[in-house]
Design a protein around this nucleic acid. Sequence first.
DNA 1: CCTTTATAAATTGTCGACAATTTGTTATTG
DNA 2: CAATAACAAATTGTCGACAATTTATAAAGG
Lengths: 228, 228
Amino acid sequence: MALDNPTLQIPITTADKVFDRMLHAIVDGKITAGTKISEPELAKEYEISRSTLREALNRLEKCHLIERKPNVGSRVVECSIEGLLEIYVVREALEGMACRQAAEKMSDDEIAEMQAMLVQHAKSPALQDGIAYYQEEGDLDFHYKVILGSHNQQLITILCGQLYHLVRMYRIQFGMNSSRATRAFDEHSRIVEAIADRDGELAEILMRRHIAASRKNIESKIAQQLEQ
Amino acid sequence: MALDNPTLQIPITTADKVFDRMLHAIVDGKITAGTKISEPELAKEYEISRSTLREALNRLEKCHLIERKPNVGSRVVECSIEGLLEIYVVREALEGMACRQAAEKMSDDEIAEMQAMLVQHAKSPALQDGIAYYQEEGDLDFHYKVILGSHNQQLITILCGQLYHLVRMYRIQFGMNSSRATRAFDEHSRIVEAIADRDGELAEILMRRHIAASRKNIESKIAQQLEQ
DNA sequence: CCTTTATAAATTGTCGACAATTTGTTATTG
DNA sequence: CAATAACAAATTGTCGACAATTTATAAAGG
C-alpha cells in the first residue's frame, strides 16, 4: 500500500503491536497532542504489563512522537507552527541531499521504475480532479522512492523511520489538503528528469525548491487561518 | 568541558548512568564494534537487573550505536568505510543547513561569543603546534556552537543527540588525528564571518565545503592505509 | 558422511511486585 | 490570608521470575 513505510517491518513482539497502535492513535490525533501519558492507565487499556508498554514508549520516543522526563513521565509531542517549520527545514536539507545521492546512486532499473510510477500517477483520477495528489499516496510515494534511491542507510533511517511519522501527524492534525496537486506533480517530473540525467546538483536544487515551496504554501495557509 | 554534549543532560536514573558507561565503552572501542551483546552477562557486569540494562540499550539504539533484532538480540554497530562516508553526507546536508539557519537566527551576543571562542582557539598551543585542533575540542566546539545557533530543535537533536556519538566513534576507532588543523581553523573563521554578515547562503556553502573537505581528507587517508 | 529432525540449553520478551521519586493535599506558622 | 512544611497518594524506576523464542547439540535417517 502507498502509505506503508519501507523501514517499518511487520510487528513481531507484542510491544511492536502496541507501538503500532499508539503510533496511529497519536498521528491521527486520537491521543491528543500534548497529553500526559499515564503508564498504568494505558497498560490496562492495551491489556499488557507496564514493562511492555514502556518498551513501546521507547520506540515512540525514537520517532519524536513523545517526550520523556526522568521520574516525571511522558507527554505526546505538541504540534506547533514553529515545530512544523523546523521539520520542513530539516527535510529541505536531507531530502535535497538524498535527491543528489539518488542521481548518483540509483540503478537504471530503479529510475525506470520511478518514471513508470509518475506515468501511473498522471493517469490517476485524484490528480485529474486536482485534489488528492499532494496530500496522499502520490507525494509520499515519490519522496520515498527518492530517499530509498539515495542508498544511504542513515538518510533512510532518519527520514523514513523518524521524521516520516511526525510529518504525517502534522499533515493530519493541521488538516492539509493542499491544492498544490498538479503543481507538485510537475515539480516531481522535473526532479526525475534531473535524476535520469545523473545531474545530482540540479536534482538537489529542484528538490529543495519543491520542499521550500510546500513549506511556504503551508505558511500562507496558516497566516490565512489566523486572519479569519 | 569541550567534549561535553549540550543535549546530554546529567544522568539521573541508574539506567542513565549505565547508558553513559556503555556509550563511552563503545565509542572508545572497549566493547568491540560488531560484538553481540549478552543481556545477562552485561547485567551482571554492571550489577543491575536486565530491565534496567534494556532501558540503557534502548538509548544506545537511539544513537545508532547498537542494532536490535526482535527475539535475537543486540549487536554493537560495525564501523565500515561506507558507514563513515554516509555520515559525512548527512552531516554535509544538516550542518550546512544549520549554518544557514545560524546566520539568520543567532543573536548578536551569540555571534560575539563564537568569535571570542575562535580568538581563544587561535591562541591555543594545540593549534600552534599544528596537530590537535581538528581532532579535539576546537572542531567539535565550533560545530556545536553553529548547530545550537540554528535554534532548530530537530537539527540539534539529530546532530548533537544522535550522530555526534557515531562521529566520535569513527574518529577514535579509525584513528583520525588529522593534519587539517590550521586549515580547518581558517575555514571556521570564514564561516563565522559569513554568519556575522547574516549571509546564510554563503554560510551554508562554506560549511558544506568544510565538511566535504574533511570527508575527502579521510577518504585519501583510508586509500593510503589500504596501499600499505 | 552429510543432511535433517528432535531435543536441550540459552537468550529474549513479558509479567507482577516493590522501592524511589514526584505530585497533590492538608496542616501549621508568620 | 499567604507561604511553608509535613504528610499521603500516585507515578515512575528497578527488580527477580516465568513464558516464548531462538540457538546449539545430539540422534536418526538417507
